[in-house]
Computed example of a mutant assay.
Amino acid sequence: MGSPVIDDYLKRIYHHTEWQDSRITPSQLATELGLAPSSVTEMVRKLAAQGLVTHRPYGPVSLTPEGEKRAAAIIRRHRLIETWLVNEFGYAWDEVHDEAEILEHAISDRLLEGIDERLGRPRFDPHGDAIPDESGAVDRAPFVLLSEATAGHTGHVLRVSDRDPQLLRVVEAAGVSVGAEVVVHDPGALVVDGARVDLPPEAAAAVWLTA
């Protein structure tokens, strides 16, 4: 098992480019982690020295193939645990993130394999995020962020960000669940089962649809 601190850095870098293309900067990474920029800069240097990231002074940070493999492995653990907690223990999808953050560093590879097998080797977690396979590969359909979808766009909900549990609850209460077929009315509203559903403004940057 790797260092939880290093794993957290690698996860944040991986997450940043998972659903969009721009790479993360050290200042963005500091904001994401809630740390001083100087601390993040020093850790990025250490990660680069270990061959886990590439970084130029004042430039963005990218994972190396080795860094991406390690990040995918810890994200696989996290998302399998989230799926396990929802399916086996009745957790709501807005409750699992913090629990999985603890458990991902505690369970053995043997138990993780057992969880994966019991769940039927799922490809996605409850929020719609792809679960990397053992090689780190993911299977994800082409997607569009709700804020960028045009009026009249029809698709299925691929993902709802788990960053804000309160927003998750509001979105779920509105009937917008992963897998639901929707029609975009505008970035703040969807049509679900023929009925218009108004969403809070922040949902436009937290809901992804099939392209």
Score class of each variant (00 low, 15 high):
1 M>V: 15
2 G>F: 08
2 G>H: 09
5 V>N: 09
6 I>T: 14
7 D>G: 12
11 K>Q: 12
17 T>H: 05
18 E>L: 13
18 E>R: 13
18 E>F: 10
19 W>V: 10
21 D>W: 09
22 S>Y: 10
22 S>W: 09
24 I>K: 01
25 T>N: 00
26 P>C: 08
29 L>K: 01
30 A>G: 05
32 E>V: 13
32 E>M: 11
34 G>W: 06
36 A>I: 12
38 S>H: 06
41 T>W: 00
42 E>M: 13
42 E>R: 15
45 R>C: 05
46 K>Y: 13
49 A>Y: 08
55 H>S: 15
56 R>W: 04
58 Y>I: 02
60 P>L: 09
64 T>C: 09
67 G>K: 09
67 G>S: 09
70 R>W: 03
74 I>D: 04
75 I>Y: 04
75 I>L: 15
77 R>K: 14
77 R>W: 05
77 R>P: 09
78 H>M: 04
83 T>D: 04
86 V>R: 00
88 E>M: 15
88 E>R: 15
89 F>S: 01
89 F>M: 10
93 W>I: 15
97 H>I: 09
97 H>C: 06
100 A>H: 06
101 E>S: 14
101 E>Y: 07
105 H>S: 14
107 I>K: 03
111 L>R: 11
111 L>S: 10
113 E>H: 11
113 E>F: 03
115 I>Y: 00
115 I>N: 07
117 E>I: 12
119 L>I: 11
122 P>W: 13
125 D>L: 07
126 P>E: 09
128 G>W: 05
128 G>Y: 08
129 D>N: 12
132 P>I: 08
133 D>S: 05
133 D>Y: 02
134 E>D: 01
135 S>K: 10
137 A>Q: 02
137 A>S: 07
139 D>C: 04
141 A>T: 15
141 A>R: 14
144 V>F: 10
147 S>E: 06
149 A>Y: 04
151 A>K: 10
151 A>P: 04
153 H>T: 11
154 T>E: 12
156 H>F: 08
156 H>R: 14
159 R>F: 05
160 V>M: 02
164 D>V: 09
167 L>M: 12
167 L>H: 03
169 R>Y: 06
170 V>C: 01
174 A>R: 06
175 G>P: 00
176 V>G: 01
177 S>G: 07
182 V>G: 05
182 V>M: 13
183 V>F: 01
184 V>E: 08
185 H>W: 11
190 L>V: 04
191 V>M: 04
191 V>W: 05
193 D>V: 07
194 G>V: 03
194 G>D: 06
195 A>C: 02
196 R>K: 00
198 D>Y: 01
201 P>Y: 06
203 A>C: 02
204 A>H: 01
206 A>D: 00
207 V>N: 01
207 V>D: 02
210 T>S: 15
211 A>T: 11
